[in-house]
């Protein structure tokens, strides 16, 4: 009886192999290349975290820009560069050197667990200026849990201004605090209902930009060219970490302006008359 089972298994396996080998011949180039886990992401650069025994490779969703950038930190053992390190503690230290002064920017440190697929540590950095105004470096502090050593990787980076700003800066009308608002989503806006996410940060000092979680946002989309808006939008509300989530509706493609008014939880006006432009086809 057992022999019969084995024979069946062999037969099935053989059939399977011969079929898949047939397939290989058919569409050889596509099937044989293993998928790159970083496919679709933009490679920013790499350097070694001296002391931590790790090579740090940085990826992002697109070339770094002024605004909220999702950053993927992939760590490799410096002794064996094909081994990806997944046990580590990663923190960001972005800095801009403007000659006379240095400053940092808001960021979200990655969690201690890696993303499945890329096995990278995923965090975010909100760049406040383009590289034309100075020199940006992205410092990444690594605590390598594999060897319990620490080190810092410092990568020079280039930050560009997107064609449509994704960051607005203003001062609070209440206490003059410098505030930064970034539009995170929609990444690729389309006609219909879109998730919309904003991040709000304030400047505590040149090196500290904590998230602001207790504001209210009133959001009004408009098509300036035609003078109309869209109905049924849902104002973004705070969901923690400086994030505000809502829904924005576009009734047609083209150039939209999203008007934003900010106030405190007690309805004190922080700033009104701000906007983001969103153009899509």
């Amino acid at each position: 009886m057992k022999i019969f089972k084995y024979l069946t298994f062999l037969f099935v396996a053989f059939t399977f192999i011969s079929l898949s080998s047939c397939n290989k011949e058919d569409d050889d180039p596509i099937e044989t290349t293993p998928t790159d886990p970083f496919e679709g992401l933009t490679y920013i650069g790499e350097t070694s975290a001296v002391g931590a025994g790790a090579i740090v490779k940085i990826y992002a969703d697109e070339e770094l820009f002024v605004g909220y950038n999702t950053i993927y930190v992939a760590l490799y053992d410096s002794a064996n560069t094909t081994t990806q390190l997944t046990e580590a503690h990663v923190t960001f230290m972005p800095e801009m050197n403007m000659g006379m002064m240095h400053h940092a920017c808001p960021f979200e440190n990655p969690s201690t667990t890696v993303e499945s697929g890329t096995n990278a540590f995923k965090g975010a950095v909100v760049f406040l200026m383009p590289s034309t105004a100075g020199t940006w470096t992205l410092g990444v502090h690594i605590h390598n849990h594999a060897n319990h050593q620490e080190g810092i990787a410092i990568l020079p980076i280039t930050v560009t201004e997107p064609s449509e700003p994704k960051l607005i800066t203003f001062e609070s009308e209440i206490d003059g605090t410098k505030l930064f608002v970034t539009r995170i989503t929609p990444l690729s806006p389309e006609v219909g209902v879109n998730d919309v996410q904003f991040g709000i940060y304030k400047r505590e000092n040149m090196m500290s930009f904590p998230a602001v979680n207790d504001y209210r946002i009133t959001m009004t989309p408009e098509m300036p060219t035609m003078g109309h808006g869209s109905p049924n939008n849902i104002d973004p509300i705070s969901t923690g970490n400086g994030m505000y989530d809502g829904k924005i509706n576009f009734t047609m493609t083209g150039y939209w302006r999203v008007h934003l008014d900010f106030s405190t939880a007690t309805h004190e006006i922080v700033k009104s008359g701000q906007y983001f432009d969103i153009t899509f086809q």
């Binding site: 060219t225 047609m252 083209g254």
Partner: peptide, 14 residues
Amino acid sequence: PNDPTRPEEPSMYM
């Protein structure tokens, strides 16, 4: 759109 100050503005579609 025909705003001369925004020549890059794309057409609108619905």
